[in-house]
Amino acid sequence: MFLAYILSTIRDHLRYRQSIRELTKLSDRDLEDVGISRHEIDTIASNARA
């Protein structure tokens, strides 16, 4: 049970980091095209964890 929790937490963190990595690669214009601004990246990546 505890191991499953640890693995889930690690997967969530990896998903968060991957989202940050992908979104920061986009230009401001590309981000604008999808309807987000650069300062929202952390919030969006945090929501990807759930």
Rank of each mutant, 00 (worst) to 15 (best):
I10P: 02
H39A: 06
I36H: 04
A45D: 05
Q18A: 13
T43G: 11
G35C: 05
K25M: 06
S27W: 09
S37E: 13
N47C: 10
R29N: 12
G35R: 04
I6Y: 06
V34G: 02
I20G: 01
M1P: 05
R21L: 06
I20R: 02
F2C: 00
S37D: 12
Q18M: 12
S8K: 10
R17H: 09
D30P: 01
S46T: 08
A50D: 13
A50K: 13
S19D: 05
Y5D: 10
I10T: 07
I20Y: 02
R38C: 02
V34Q: 04
A48L: 08
S8A: 08
L31D: 01
L23G: 01
E22N: 10
S27P: 10
L14Q: 07
A4V: 11
L26I: 01
Y5R: 14
A48Q: 08
D30Y: 02
T9A: 13
T9Q: 13
I6P: 00
R11C: 05
S37W: 09
Y5E: 14
L23P: 04
D42A: 09
R21E: 10
I41S: 00
D33E: 15
A4M: 12
L23Y: 03
D12G: 11
L14D: 04
S27M: 11
A50T: 07
T9M: 12
E40Q: 15
Y5S: 14
R21H: 08
I10S: 07
R38Y: 04
R17I: 11
L3S: 06
Y16E: 06
D33I: 10
N47T: 10
I36S: 00
S27D: 11
A45M: 07
E32H: 09
L14C: 05
R17G: 02
M1E: 14
R15I: 13
K25G: 02
R17M: 15
H13Y: 07
R29S: 13
L3V: 11
I44L: 14
S19K: 10
H13T: 03
Y5H: 09
